[in-house]
Design a protein around this nucleic acid. Structure first.
Lengths: 197, 197
DNA sequence: CTCTAACCGGAGCACCAGCCCGTTTGTCAA
DNA sequence: TTGACAAACGGGCTGGTGCTCCGGTTAGAG
């Protein structure tokens, strides 16, 4: 809840506003999607819009902050999966987690797409993207060493694909679609011949 | 160029404006992406914004009109591919065409996503989406009958995936990514065991 | 307690999509 | 050819956005 820029401790009032904004953003994003009005968030947080823009210079900064804990959780899942399953299944299971999560949090996918060349996000390199990429790379590497996944597949591609799938599925009424699309992708990275069903 | 609503012939001036807007939209979308300002398009077409909104009730209507000919071309490609290749390779080749095209026309993918529940688009069911879906279904069905593609795969899913891939690749600097992602998807739908490279 | 720098937030800017409505213009019948 | 009328036009308005400027407020160090 009290995640802040590590630069220098915020002044007490600033920290309070930071938390309020984060809370409001969580609610608003959840029910209106990631495209929601920032003014509305500021209003609901009882804060001027300038304050919001000072603490979160871009919409994406805010999104990253909002999703930060849940992404951490997801990365923890990755470690857990790695421990309790074989490399191959671990990766697959985690991709499932990821898809479910991304499809569930409306608009996360969309916002993560919008180009990484976001100045203030790059130096603060503990961004969500970086964490997830690291986790994915780890799982993928082990799966590849175990021979469960084709060697040509890259972690970034896998993530991009999952991201894209979530995004696509979000906009079709069909709830099960994300699962089917993921399945297409998975069958694609699996080394074993596909079943003949 | 002179594609119009088939309802009733537009009055001469209206038709002229229709064409001008289409021309301007083509230019503007091409260089600014599909999110470009509609006012700017109207301005460049030498037309009031109301006129644009009357002839094209939504941004998507305009996009559909702009891309209509090229989509037709794409569907013609599908027939061509079907004639000159085996069912399996034909589908794969066409998916390649589709990806290349979608990745090339910035923003088409994004706009096609945004939910199909667009009233004025549904009755005018000769929309791009419908044409492409039909073409894909045809190719897919033949490929499946020939045993080249797993039976579980649906045409809509395939299209959604290609669409998602184009969208994802568009936002990463990596130009070759679309190809790699498509490859992941393809290996996934192929019935033959993956090569051991 | 004082004083400064950090912080606040409303007013303002530029932009957008979409609509209203008085005006112009194409079209068709007389 | 002319007249009448519906069709089409487009400027300007509304209500929204993201973002910034700047005069006022306040936390908190000394």
């Amino acid at each position: 809840m009290a995640y802040t820029t590590e630069r220098r401790p915020l002044r007490a009032d600033a920290q309070r506003n930071y938390d309020r904004i984060l809370g409001a953003a969580r609610e608003v994003f959840a029910c209106q999607g990631a495209g929601a009005s920032l003014k509305e968030i500021a209003r609901r947080a009882g804060v001027g819009s300038a304050t919001l823009h000072r603490l979160f210079p871009s919409r994406r900064t805010l999104l990253e902050a909002v999703f930060h804990d849940r992404v951490e959780e997801l990365c923890a899942n990755a470690a857990q999966r790695a421990k309790e399953s074989e490399p191959g299944p671990a990766l697959l299971a985690w991709l499932g987690d990821l898809t479910a999560y991304a499809a569930g949090s409306r608009g996360l996918a969309a916002s993560l797409l919008h180009d990484g060349r976001d100045a203030d996000l790059l130096d603060q390199n503990e961004g969500c993207q970086a964490m997830i990429t690291a986790a994915a790379r780890e799982l993928l590497q082990r799966a590849q060493q175990a021979g469960a996944v084709r060697p040509g597949v890259r972690a970034e591609d896998l993530l991009a694909l999952v991201n894209a799938i979530s995004l696509a599925a979000e906009h079709h009424d069909d709830d099960a679609q994300a699962g089917r699309l993921l399945n297409i992708a998975i069958e694609g990275i699996s080394l074993q011949p596909a079943e003949n069903a």
